[in-house]
């Protein structure tokens, strides 16, 4: 973290993020990301060794509740939002494992 951020591998980050990028977008995104990462690198100036991180703005400990079943959102309602279903009962996805496809 030296105030510069050269050489971000945009294609690799996109792979981690499961994002397909238009190839002509990569150079400009690289420039923008390097400018922003270069800017946020200013945090390296601060000595934070002895500082506790803030995970949440308001400190909370584990919240315990009675172990009783709640009322979940009905299955048919949730399935209505799926892009594709099988007989309105299952979410349909393309083939996951190699081999013969399902009908």
């Amino acid at each position: 973290m030296d105030g510069k951020a050269d050489g971000i591998d945009v294609a690799e980050v996109a792979k981690l993020a499961r994002l397909e990028l238009e190839p002509d977008r990569i150079p400009s995104l690289q420039k923008e990301m390097e400018a922003i990462v270069g800017y946020v690198n200013m945090l390296a100036e601060l000595d934070t060794d002895q500082i506790e991180p803030t995970v949440h703005a308001v400190d909370r400990v584990n919240i315990i509740r009675e172990d009783v079943p709640g009322e979940p959102c009905p299955r048919e309602l949730m399935l209505r939002t799926a892009p594709a279903t099988v007989d309105d009962e299952l979410v349909r996805v393309p083939q996951v494992l190699p081999g013969e496809g399902m009908a």
Binding site: A17, L29, M33, V37, L43, A44, L46, I51, P53
Partner: peptide, 30 residues
């Protein structure tokens, strides 16, 4: 949205977590 997902993925990626996200959480304390 893509830009921010990319930035977020970058700062959380292996080897950068301490330098970015953890450090930012400490600065948040400050």
């Amino acid at each position: 949205v893509k830009r921010r997902i990319m930035l977020g993925t970058y700062v959380l990626s292996s080897g950068y977590y301490d330098a970015y996200y953890l450090r930012a959480q400490k600065v948040r304390t400050l």
